[in-house]
Amino acid sequence: MRYIELFLQYSGQYIKTRLAYRSDVVVGFLFDLLQQVVNLTFIFLVFDYTSSMNGWSRDEVIFIYGYFLIPFSIFMAFFNIWQFNDEYIIKGQMDRVLTRPIHSLYQVLLEKMELESLLGCLTGATIMIFSGFALNISFGIKDMLLFLPFVIGGVLVYGGVFVFLASLAFFTDSKLSIMPMMYNVGNYGRYPIQIYNRAIRFVLTWILPFAFVGSYPASYFLNRTEWVGYALFTPIMGLIVFIISIYFWNYGVKKYRGVGS
C-alpha cells in the first residue's frame, strides 16, 4: 500500500538526517534512561514505607510501569505533535500539507516522527522482564497474541487524545496550553489506577482513557482477573478514541482558516 511505502520512505529519510546527529540521539536516550531511573527510585522509596498500595505489590507496580513505557514510547515516536499549533497553524505550514495528495494528519505525523523514542521500548521491556521474573509470572502463547493488540490499543488511545487536542488549533486562534497538562494526566496511566480515588478512576477509564494504556492491559499479564474485561476492551477503546479524533481532525481541516501572509 502507498501509505506504507511512504512511511518507509520518510523513515529512511529520517534516519539519514538523524545519523548526522548521532550524539544527540545517544544523549537523548541517556537522558530518557535517567528519567526512568528517577521514577523507579521514587516507586522504591514509596514501597520502603508500605508493602502494598491498594492491593498492588512493588514488583507489580514496576511491571505496569515497564509495560506502560512500551505503548508510550511508540506514541512518543509517532505522535510528536505537541507543537502542531505553532509549527503548522501559526507558521502556515498546514497550507503546504493541504496541497499534497495524502491525508493531512498522516503527513504531519510522518514529518514529525521521532524514531529514536522507540528506544524507550527497550527500557520498558527490560523493566517488565526483570519484574516479571521477580513475580514469577508465566507468559504463554495467549499472552503473546494479546500483547500486540494491547500495545496498539494503548498507542491509539494516547495518539487519539493528542490528535484531538491538536485539532483544537483549527478552531481557535489563541495559543493552547492544554498539551503539557494532558501530558501529566497521561502519566497517570503508568500506575495501577486502583491507587486513585473514584472520580479520577472514572475519568481515566471513560473520559481520557489513559488507564487503557498501562494499567488495564498490564494487569491482565499480571493475572489479575478482576479487570480482564477492561483489559480485553483495550484495542476497541483505542479504535474508538482514534476514530473520533480523526473525524474531529477532518472537521477541523474544513474550518482551517490559514494565516494571512
Binding site: 520512505q9 529519510q13 538526517t17 502556515g92 505550514q93 496541497t99 495528495p101 501572509s261
Partner: peptide, 29 residues
C-alpha cells in the same frame, strides 16, 4: 486529495519543500 494531484502550487512567501533535507531527497519524496 484527488484534486491536488492535478495541480502545482508555489507560495513565494513560504517554502513548500522540507527544510532539512537535500533538494534531491525532497524531489524523491
Amino acid at each position: 486529495e484527488a484534486y491536488v494531484k492535478t495541480i502545482g502550487v508555489v507560495f513565494g512567501q513560504r517554502s513548500q519543500l522540507w527544510w532539512d533535507i537535500a533538494v534531491q531527497e525532497s524531489f524523491r519524496l
